[in-house]
Amino acid sequence: MTESQHNSGSQKKGIRGIKGFEGIFLFLALGLCWQFTTTMLPIQHSALYPTPAVTFKALLDSMPELLKGTWSSFLILIPGYLLAVLFGSVWGIIAGSIKWIHRVFDPFAKVAAPIPPTVYVPYAIALMPTFRISAIMVVFIGAFWPVFVNAAAGAASVPLRYRDNAGILGFGRFEYMRRVVFPAALPNIFSGMAVGLALAFILLTVAELFGANQGLGRFVQYYADYADYPRMVAGILYTGMVTFATMALLDFVKRRLLFWVR
């Protein structure tokens, strides 16, 4: 992951200006294609397939509602995700580096981690007193496993050279965990965090389809129910942009913290 990023950085030599912006052309092409197919072709259900202009108008009109929905969604996403990152990385590091804990926990992790977390959604909503708490719980479960599994793998495979150095410097167990295992496992933790964040968004929107009265997933579901497809498509595009921005933020933090990985 980081290697390819490094490569793309060093390849910015040849044609200046265009390099690094090729992706924009695809967006333009897709936009033109959308424009063309909605306006030039005789499509019957034009209500189901709104033109770009109509969609953008719907997007602008529903901006206040979308922003409110974003806030509502983030009140679920952020606590659930951050708790998952915290517990997943700490517990992953412990389970990855202390052998007996690994032996106790590994069979359970092997069984529980592959369960698609979406199946918890109905039960969580039934179980928990409010929708928000149940959604936070589902996001937590979904994001926990990727972070945990990756942190444990990273901690279990701390290179021998770092262990040797820690021994020579006379590190105690806690110091070894904090100063060696944690930074050494950090690249793995970030891979887990990226997978976990994508899953968290999926679970968030799925949970909102079930029981929310506001939020991004709810917005899409609501206007689909009322057959207001321009707003629904706008909601999908907006959710995509929010997801992209959040992932980009994570990637930014990752690059800042993992500057030493090459």
Binding site: R161, N165, G167, I168, L169, G170, P183, V261
Partner: peptide, 19 residues
């Protein structure tokens, strides 16, 4: 019986923590 700071080690190319 184990490593000790009484005996320092310099390895071929990895004595430092990269982070």
């Amino acid at each position: 019986t184990g490593p000790n700071i009484e005996r320092g080690v310099v390895f071929q190319d990895y004595s430092l923590f990269p982070w």
